[in-house]
Design a protein around this nucleic acid. Structure first.
Length: 485
RNA sequence: GGUGCCGUAGCCAAGUGGUAAGGCAGAGGUCUGCAAAACCUCGAUUCGGCGGUUCGAAUCCGCCCGGCACCUCCA
């Protein structure tokens, strides 16, 4: 089976075949750097990262580009308000975005083009549109895309451009557009724009770019005029992506992005995330409340990317437990004694289990990144591995069998990134060592007490360890301990 | 008003015509000095409601109820 992805353009699941065999150009609409990203933004970027990782696992050589919109109404407004240059205003938000990526284990893109670095390309693109008769300069000095000259308009969002517009917003429009549906490619400079350095000279006067043209210029500059995948949040389908298609294909007369993928929104406690109601969390907010980044990753994975995800505390708790069990199994596998050969009365079986899980994982991910099902494949591997180690008890597992299971875990985690993140979440090495020395000493005392059948003292030591968050488990090979939050 | 999505066990969530994955929580069991962990077993005779199509529907169609999203710059 091959990878199939749901293409918003056709509203169908399609086999993914890149333009150049083995190579994929992928673009994700990044954030506007005017505020710290919230957890909903992170879901979308997580989704793009997941797609990126899976394409690489599938053997594709991927070039992944995510832009940063560092000039638009909001960034200019913010810079003016703070009395600083545009770049000075936007850069901290970009920095924080990357910090968030690191905390969440999002590997990120190969390139992060900033809109302000691509002004020349935008101007060139707009020039082509004007020459082609698809754009015009209005009395206000701004340049607009002329929808009436572009017949394909509406093909992504399935909107009918001939339908009469309605709504009060039109009246509030402050620009001199020929048609209310026309959108700005270039916005004429306003006096205050210059104060923050948000003005560029062009053949048709000074100003700054419209939002949509930024993405067309950056994506085509980095990936070519036709490329494979364009993704982002569902809210971008209209008008952003619709307009990107119109202006890009209008200028080049070539297909723009071939597959359009859109990630659904995240809801908090069943409600829409909104600043107005305070129903909004950033990654920092969640971490401060003791939520682990690995729990968030797991919660993201439980739902399909095209479904709304109900983000609840209960779901996060459930995820924390699921990740704990996953990691415990992986660690147990790693620490289980090994032997060179299987005993005569033992039949290794994890090779087969690992192969089956991996196949189920791949089948699910091939089906439009069905992470819920892919996750069930991983947990089948967990259950089977634990059962196998239970059976072996103190008997060693052959290195080959252990390796088969371990490599299946590693391969799946190369996409999910749960184990890798959980590993990093362990306490820092220095503290860990100091604690370990203390715990080991207490465990020796407890072992003495137990062999003397002084269970009262043994339990007292265990309780003492528990107050420090150390949980002791007695196993056939001796006590094992771990730190619980 | 237009377009589209969703409603599956206590919670999260797959499944889109062939008789309900998985995770968390819960119950019982094995193991244990007691635990913990792990494993095993159990849980929706049923998929918002009512009709219809079909040999057969959670899956298709209609209506209704409930929730949500987009409709000019919000991931």
């Amino acid at each position: 089976m091959s990878l199939h992805l749901f293409n918003t353009l056709t509203r169908r699941r399609e086999e993914f075949v890149p333009l150049d065999e083995g190579r994929v150009g992928m673009y994700c609409c990044g954030p506007t750097t005017y505020a710290d990203p919230h957890i909903g933004n992170m879901r979308t970027f997580f989704f793009a990262d997941l797609l990126h990782r899976y394409l690489e696992l599938r053997g594709f050589d991927v070039k992944f580009v995510m832009n940063l919109t560092d000039v638009d109404d909001k960034t200019i407004r913010g810079a003016i308000r703070d009395g600083i240059a545009l770049g000075e205003y936007t850069e901290p938000f970009a920095t924080r975005l990357f910090e968030n990526f690191a905390r969440l284990g999002i590997e990120g893109a190969d390139e992060y083009p900033r809109a302000t670095d691509y002004i020349a390309q935008m101007i060139a693109l707009i020039d082509r549109l004007i020459e082609g008769g698809l754009a015009y300069q209005a009395a206000d000095g701004s340049v607009y895309f002329d929808i009436s000259e572009y017949p394909g308009y509406g093909k992504l969002s399935k909107t009918d451009p001939t339908r009469a517009r309605r709504g009060a917003r039109v009246a509030a429009d402050e620009y001199d557009k020929g048609d209310v549906r026309d959108f700005a490619l270039w916005k004429a400079a306003k006096p205050e724009d210059a104060k923050v350095g948000a003005v560029w000279e062009t053949p048709w006067g000074s100003g700054r770019p419209g939002w949509h043209i930024e993405c067309s210029a950056m994506s085509m500059s980095e990936l070519g005029e036709t490329f494979d995948i364009h993704c982002g949040g569902v809210d971008l389908i209209f008008p952003h992506h619709e307009d990107e298609i119109a202006q890009s294909e209008g200028a080049t007369a070539k297909p723009f992005a071939r597959y359009w993928l859109h990630g659904e929104f995240l809801q908090l406690q069943g409600e829409k995330m909104a600043k107005s109601t305070g129903n909004l969390f950033t990654l920092e907010d969640l971490l401060e409340r003791g939520v682990k980044a690995s729990s968030i990753r797991h919660t993201f994975l439980t739902a399909h990317y095209r479904s709304k995800l109900n983000f609840t505390w209960q779901a996060l708790d459930a995820s924390a437990e699921a990740v704990r069990r996953l990691r415990a199994c992986y660690v147990r596998l790693r620490e289980h004694p090994t032997s060179r050969h299987a005993r005569a009365d033992d039949t290794p079986r994890l090779h087969e289990v690992a192969a089956r899980s991996l196949a189920a994982f791949t089948r699910a991910m091939d089906d439009d990144l069905n992470t819920s099902v892919a996750l069930s494949a991983l947990f089948e591997l967990v259950t089977e591995t634990n059962a196998r180690l239970d059976d072996l008890c103190t008997i060693g597992i052959t290195e080959a069998e252990a390796e088969a299971a371990r490599s299946a875990f590693d391969r799946i985690d190369g996409v999910f990134g749960l184990l890798a993140l959980a590993e990093r979440e362990q306490d820092d090495p220095v503290d860990q060592q100091r604690l370990a020395a203390w715990v080991e000493q207490r465990l020796v005392e407890r072992a003495d007490a137990r062999s003397a059948r002084d269970f009262t003292r043994a339990d007292r030591i265990r309780d003492e360890l528990a107050t420090r968050g150390v949980v002791v488990e007695d196993t056939p090979t001796g006590p094992r301990w771990s730190v619980q939050p």
